[in-house]
Design a protein around this nucleic acid. Sequence first.
DNA 1: GCTGCGATATGAAACGTTACATATGCTGTG
DNA 2: CACAGCATATGTAACGTTTCATATCGCAGC
Lengths: 329, 329
Amino acid sequence: MKRKENAPTMKDVAREAGVALGTVSKVFNDIPVGKDYRRRVEEAARRLGYQVNSYARGLKTNKTCSAALILPDVTTPFFSALAQNVCQQLAARQYKTILSLTASDRSAEQRCIQMVQQNKVDGIIGLTYNPDLKVDPDLPYVSIDRHFSRDVPCVASDNFGGGQLAAEKLLELGCVRPLFLRMWSGVPGEADKRWDGFASVWRQRRIDCASLHLKDEEGYGPFREFLAGHMEGGRLAFDGVFCVNDDLAVRVRAMLEELGLRVPEDVQLIGFDGIRRFAAEGFHCSTIVQPVQRLAETSVGLLLQEDRSSLPSLVCLPVSYAPGGTTRE
Amino acid sequence: MKRKENAPTMKDVAREAGVALGTVSKVFNDIPVGKDYRRRVEEAARRLGYQVNSYARGLKTNKTCSAALILPDVTTPFFSALAQNVCQQLAARQYKTILSLTASDRSAEQRCIQMVQQNKVDGIIGLTYNPDLKVDPDLPYVSIDRHFSRDVPCVASDNFGGGQLAAEKLLELGCVRPLFLRMWSGVPGEADKRWDGFASVWRQRRIDCASLHLKDEEGYGPFREFLAGHMEGGRLAFDGVFCVNDDLAVRVRAMLEELGLRVPEDVQLIGFDGIRRFAAEGFHCSTIVQPVQRLAETSVGLLLQEDRSSLPSLVCLPVSYAPGGTTRE
DNA sequence: GCTGCGATATGAAACGTTACATATGCTGTG
DNA sequence: CACAGCATATGTAACGTTTCATATCGCAGC
């Protein structure tokens, strides 16, 4: 596939406008230029349909005005919300977003990093699972939700606190037989701390907390069986369920109702993420809300910060509880 | 934010390897080079940590190996599935994906197009709603789901056929009081044809078909009221509902059940899109499945086709029906 | 041993920009 | 009226590649 050949260059514009090359350059870089000159250049550029060639510019300035966003995938609701916000934040600062998905191919993560060194992007925002990813420490990189080296700044939600919050809410709403359900990819990450936080509260109260951890590829079937297996006389052995994300929570709700249980009357249910389709709409379930927008803002802010000598190693953003019909409040 | 300065260049590699500049270039472009030379260059490059500077290369070759993907947003399930597939397809062909979201800012669509002329990308795949988007006809552009000019190739699902298929299925399953529900952004698009196709079948059969068309910003409330308003003696005035997408269908199902109706016993429900979270999982509802992967494949294929003189104006891909528990089959 | 030929390495020019050192024009002062 | 001083325009040298015309090498044939 070929691009249009012979696009007009600055030289053409300069000739057309009857000014020097440097003057044209100034006009397109917002450097003070005599009013009359500026007008002539602008008119000539319009006549010729001139557009700056960003590859030539990039070659000189060593800046590309683009950043890579590395995500496992973009269909998981939380990831897609993240992509949306990061992309918007970057666009607001005149940066292009290069999207790299790694789920299909784990080695892709390392290859993405190489792009930067090839001057393809100015920096990287990555949410990656690869534990031994090598990141050149003086390469602009911000990690989301995964604190994999002290040299690389990480932005994350307070997952541990979120787990605690869920437990405290359930306690407050009268639950005494808690259950934690989780679906995960199999590689460790910050999200693990949701369980740690949740468990810590019950442990402190000397209350037993059951849990079931499933791998993605096992599907939702085992959850259904587990729940069915814990029914005794029309009642479930648990009265409060914390799911690792909203997606799971919504499905668990359906499973519970299939078993003839009422949510939230018989069982209360809390999810995690707090992703909504429209801001005006409610949540799909009661949930611990991640500040996706702030996550994105913070990451982009850190990435584009001029002074890279004093970056924080970890920025932990607060989560909040939002009722969504699956708790008695 | 600054990139690392003084990255090694081809000249450095050439000096280190004791060969000429051009030889180094050949090595990195897979042009035949004496075996011994190649080895020396490769070793020198590794020692110095050399990486091709793609901006210098892009300047010379006028190719960027990247394509822009323009979408309204990336949180809508169908769009995110599309983004996922297009990104993968491009990556498979060594192309980078530049993601541009336009929902927040309609004029962004036009600006995205300009990027290409600035040599930022080699081509564009766009799903845009802007009816008077100006696309340079000899600019590699593939439109998804919107056939806005004969010069610009468009790839779309067979929306009309999908609407027909939904109606035929409902008929086959015994429905005689159909309803069409739709949530849309307010700008015309290919998805409008779902209604056209659906309506055409009933018209031909001389059966009245009710419908309700809502704008995004109105939220789902009016649907609930509409359905409640059509209850008579515990029964709904409709026995078959076709929703413009699965997202809506899932919500409508919940509304129907809230009204004490059983799905699919009392009312059958068909959605559109057929997006699944995992390939192994079933659908959220009975649905007309869009071939997202083929949509992506076809678009990317068309975009990167070398010979751009004989592109089809419209490629219409077949949809299929998939039961998902909200129909009696 | 010399010539001629094919194969392969070489180095300079060009790609379209930015940045800097230099040239030009203009204003105001002694 | 000349000239310092300033502001602004000019033109050239990079930036790191690719490409192409030229140079070099090795070898077969006479």
